[in-house]
Amino acid sequence: MDRIPLEKKVLSENDRIAARLRESYHEHGILCVNIISSPGSGKTSLLERTLERFPKGTRVAVLTGDIQTDNDARRLSRFGFPAKQITTGGTCHLDALRVERALADWSLDSLDLLIIENVGNLVCPSSYDLGEAAKIVMLSVAEGEDKPLKYPSIFAKSELLILNKVDLLPYVPFDIKLAREYARSIHPGMEILEVSCTTGQGLDQWIEWLEKRGKAVTSDK
C-alpha cells in the first residue's frame, strides 16, 4: 500500500473560478458582497430598501439565489437596476460557477457594486467562495439570539452582522445585547448594524458601510 499526499482543496474547482471572479471585480473596481441568512430574515427587503435609496444611474447590480421561482428578481427589478435570479433547482447554496454564468452577459465596466443575495441558509453558503470582498450575515430578531453559537462558521467568516427587524423588539423575547455578545464571542470585533427595513432605522449606516467598503476596494486597486 502506498500513501500519496494530495494537499488540494476539495472545492478547488469552485475556488479557481472564485479567484477569477475576485480578480475581475478588482480590475473593474467593483465591491462585491455576499449576503447570507436564514430564509425569511429579510435579505430581499434589505435590498429593496437599499435600491430605492440609490439615485438613478448608480452603478449597482443584484444577483439573487433561490431554489425555485424568480419572485425575488421580479421584486428587485422594479428599481431600474440590473437584477437577475439564479435558480439553483434544489441546491442549497450559490457557487462560483453559477455566479460567473449569471454575470456573463453583463458588462462589469458599468458596475461599482454587485450585491449577491445567497440562498436562504446559514450553513451551506459558508463553504462556497463567490469571489466576494465581504460576506455579510443577517439575523432577524424574530429568530433565536443564539444563532451565532449554533452556526459559528458563517458568523466567524462574515465581516458584518446585520440585525434586522429591530422594530419588532418590543413584541419578541429576543435579547439583542446577548445576540451581540454571542456574535462577538464567535467573531471578536465583528461589525454589527441594527436595522429595520420597515421603519428605515439603521439604513443610513448600512449605506455608509457600503460606501466605506467600496472606497477600500477602489483605494487598493
Binding site: 500500500m1 500519496i4 494530495l6 494537499e7 488540494k8 476539495v10 459559528p152 466567524a156 467568516k157
Partner: peptide
C-alpha cells in the same frame, strides 16, 4: 469555544484556521 489569547487573555483575537476542506492523501494498491 474560548477565543481569548492564552498568554495575555486579550479577547480581540483573529481567525487563523479551521476553515479547511482539504484533500490530504490517497492510499493506493
Amino acid at each position: 469555544d474560548n477565543l481569548a489569547c492564552p498568554r495575555c487573555a486579550n479577547g480581540e483575537t483573529l481567525l487563523a484556521g479551521g476553515e479547511e476542506l482539504d484533500l490530504a492523501y490517497l492510499e493506493v494498491e
